[in-house]
Design a protein around this nucleic acid. Structure first.
Lengths: 195, 195, 195, 195
DNA sequence: GATGAATGAGAGTTCATTCAT
DNA sequence: AATGAATGAACTCTCATTCAT
């Protein structure tokens, strides 16, 4: 039923990002997004199933392009360690450049009900997979410890980056996020590396 | 105006934890918490300002005892590295033992509005401080690198632990969370240590 | 935000008059007005800010037309004394013909909070002004005493008419209100007149 | 069941006058009156049936002493015209001296439901009777017109005085109310008098 | 496809009143 | 007589969603 494409669809996604970032998901009324997009309230329901669907769709759009572009970056890297650096850099840069997107990703997207989480977790899993592949590759390349539990390592890596971004968002983005690429990389790579 | 103490206050806090964990903050009606606590709807408003105040108060109660007890554990440790292990162990054990509390902490508490965040961040900052003190101590004890940025290191440490818990909660707590103490510690301590 | 115009707006005003007259302002639920008007509860809030706004708007509507029509009557009078008679006659006739309106005006409208009074007093002031102009005119035409304090005279005139209506409303409108035009006029005009 | 006497009863009446004057009847909580009186909420219900009973009792207390004292003033007057002057003077003076009482009488007391009105109207009727007796006396003494309708005249007299007080209350009591005794008397007495 | 007026279920909150102590 | 914690009915207002135009 929901169209999920067309020019207005993307306008609505952008308006939703902006509005959610400004007001928060629960405080945002569907009418607010419609007004921001310059369309009527009812129009929103041509493109989305319901309010939650806007948040989920928005995340999928963002996440798919995020993973796609990150993938492009990674193929240009020589080894797992370079790739780890690329992941951190890409993750931090993208969000540093898109503060609205950062707020939505770090704060608003965590406001979703259990059930809907699945819609969100699917594209996120792709990202997790990518990280795990890099870790596996590092182990194969003897760069990382063999006894490393890949899944746990991925959680540590993602959790560290994620927390760094969240702190930046909550600090009202008052400093340069990308400056943290180096120290975060440093901490994580040592944790992973062969002694 | 809100009483914020007394036997019923604690009964209500417990009921709120249980109900939020089961249904999620936004889906929970104040009446649900009241029924769970075996009191009338109006009674809730003798002890709390409003619905949000329940969530904030609940977090403060949990966090204050969390930090207090963690502090007791830490004074029994010999050095920073032992303390880091203690932090990870304590953090994971507490939440592993209190699944409702874990769900509320990891998921529901992130559903709060910007402004109210302050009520939440204060007790959380105490925890962050504790972690940072351990890192500083490690640097003084020459266990950790001198060029370590304490704040960033804290974010990495907390982010890693936090993500590990979140994944466990979202996995429906299907495995033993405390089993991850070792590998997480391993990853983090290497990142911090002197080469 | 409130629309304050359109067909439904007037239907709602009428329903509110009827319902307030029947049940009283405080005993009336917004849902009662909605049902009387044959619309959904929420529809009321498209046209009015809140419940109080209904009462205030209703009064403004009534009062504005009251003053406008009274003005038309007055321009047809030859002198101040004729005008005084016209005011009394018009005031009593209108309310005698609209018992619901009379009840709302005399009883329910006095149930409003200080602050909101301003919304009410503005259109009422127009009426007061009209009365004062007639009194001034009477003084200029040497019909009324020169040492008459216009403001006080207005209060006496309005207070007298108003009380007559209130008593009629409280008596369950059991007699002909317009029969009092003559005696009231008689009493007031003598009070005003030159000896 | 309600005690309606004793020291605390009068303290509560006074607190109610003060609180109703300050906040308005509907905005006042029973708890507010209790706090103002320095007693527990439940204590109010030892002395009064319910919230409305407070307002009604308060009015009866005020009105009974009002009429009693006015009666004392009137017996000292020689004729109806002196008595009319005494009524106006007494009415305005009492309320000028008790601004809280004035506000409650003029504004808050009009906020009552139809049914309860009866409780209020009884003591008020005594006052009306007194005025009517004076008018009748005036007619007997050939001071006032024989064709005067006593009831209507009473309404005009009371309405005029009442409106003068109401305007004063709504003006935040910014001028001397008793200064209006003369002009009001002047207007009313001429209306009543024989030509 | 687009509109936006209308819907109506739903929930937070208040507060008069009660009653065990 | 006095207390004040507890009650729970009541009601306003919001806002996601629909559908006739």
């Amino acid at each position: 039923m929901a169209k999920r494409s067309g020019e207005k669809y993307h306008v609505l996604i952008d308006s939703a990002v902006k509005t959610f970032a400004r007001t928060g998901y629960h405080r945002t009324r569907v009418a607010d997004i419609a007004r921001e997009a310059g369309v009527a309230d009812g129009t929103v329901y041509i493109y989305f199933e319901n309010k939650e669907d806007i948040l989920v769709s928005l995340f999928q759009e963002l996440m798919i392009s995020f993973v796609d572009n990150l993938y492009c970056e990674l193929v240009q890297c020589q080894n797992a360690t370079e790739k780890l650096a690329a992941i951190i850099k890409y993750h931090l840069s993208i969000l540093a450049d898109n503060p609205d997107r950062a707020r939505v990703t770090q704060i608003e997207l965590r406001q979703i009900d259990q059930v809907i989480n699945e819609g969100i977790s699917k594209p996120l899993l792709k990202y997790f997979q990518l990280i795990e592949e890099v870790i596996e590759e590092g182990k194969m390349q003897r760069l990382y410890r063999q006894n490393l539990n890949t899944r746990t390592a991925r959680k540590v890596v993602f959790g560290a980056i994620d927390e760094v971004v969240t702190c930046w968002v909550l600090s009202s983005k008052s400093y340069d996020l990308t400056a943290l690429c180096e120290p975060v990389y440093d901490l994580l790579v040592r944790g992973l590396q062969e002694v």
